[in-house]
């Protein structure tokens, strides 16, 4: 694969807080969130709904500002969406007027400035990487949820970002598809060496994927603990060790 492996990077989240003004007064969505992600690491952020993980995702992606604190990617402060970061949303957000090929090529045309046969080759590599060969000319409307998410992933990977930032990317697909996508993501991660930050509410998903799990709780949204998952991959949900990690994280969330 011709992915550059300079894809590793480190993310530093320092003292990030977020407050909203609402009718009931000020809401503290995030309180003093600190963690870092090392180059090539796969980190999951897990927490119940309302713990501010989507807010944290949006701040990480540069989609909204933090009230206090900052996020840096390889030393530079993130203030707006940047091609250094590939973003994958739960709802795919594919460009419906572009085919699979056109969606994947989008960032190559805009951010990388690649065109002609170089672009076509790169698109084909990515199509193969996410297993969509044969669907290059399909429009998103005729794809299933799992396929749409593969396109979104390939589109984000196309620009060879330093960090892949994913917000509940497999939350909208059925259970079997989700497990297959998780396995594929791990393959792609190992193949490309990307740094991945993955937001989910699914504890098992976090334990399946992550090197480390950032466990968040709510009221206010803050980190309860960061759990390192020392299990060989592929991980099996039936394992006793897997179960004890899940239980530990669940009890952290519920406390």
């Amino acid at each position: 694969m011709a992915m550059s492996d300079g894809g590793g990077s480190s993310v530093q989240v320092s003292g990030v807080s977020k407050q909203y003004a609402s009718e009931q007064g000020t809401v503290q969505a995030l309180a003093d969130v600190n963690f870092q992600v090392d180059s090539g690491e796969l980190v999951c952020i897990v927490g119940p709904s309302g713990c501010g993980k989507t807010t944290l995702f949006r701040i990480l992606a540069g989609l909204e500002p933090a009230t206090r604190g900052e996020v840096t990617l390889n030393g530079s402060v993130v203030t707006e969406p940047t091609p250094n970061m590939g973003i994958v949303f739960q709802e795919y957000h594919l460009f419906p007027w572009r085919t699979v090929r056109g969606n994947i090529a989008f960032g190559l045309e805009k951010a990388v400035g690649l065109d002609g046969t170089d672009r076509d080759q790169r698109v084909q590599q990515l199509v193969d990487l996410v297993g969509l060969a044969g669907f290059e000319d399909s429009y998103p409307k005729s794809l299933s949820g799992g396929m749409k998410q593969r396109v979104a992933l390939a589109r984000a990977l196309a620009i060879d970002p330093a960090l892949l930032l994913m917000d509940e990317p497999f939350g909208a697909v059925d259970a079997q598809t989700r497990e297959r996508l998780q396995a594929e993501l791990l393959d792609i991660w190992q193949e490309t060496g990307k740094t991945i930050l993955f937001v989910t509410h699914d504890v098992e998903e976090a334990v399946t994927l992550a090197d480390r799990v950032v466990v968040m709780g709510r009221d206010p949204g803050q980190i309860r603990e960061i759990v390192s998952v020392d299990l060989d991959r592929p991980r099996s949900r039936g394992d006793a060790a897997f179960g004890s990690y899940s239980e530990k994280i669940r009890s952290l969330i519920e406390n």
Binding site: L63, F95, A111
Partner: peptide, 24 residues
């Protein structure tokens, strides 16, 4: 969201966003 995605994929000027996302 589509505009956010386009920005994260390197479309930064208003004119380019209008051309590549808004009009389609």
């Amino acid at each position: 969201d589509l505009l956010d995605v386009a920005r994260s994929l390197g479309v930064d000027s208003d004119l380019a966003l209008i051309k590549t996302v808004v009009i389609p």
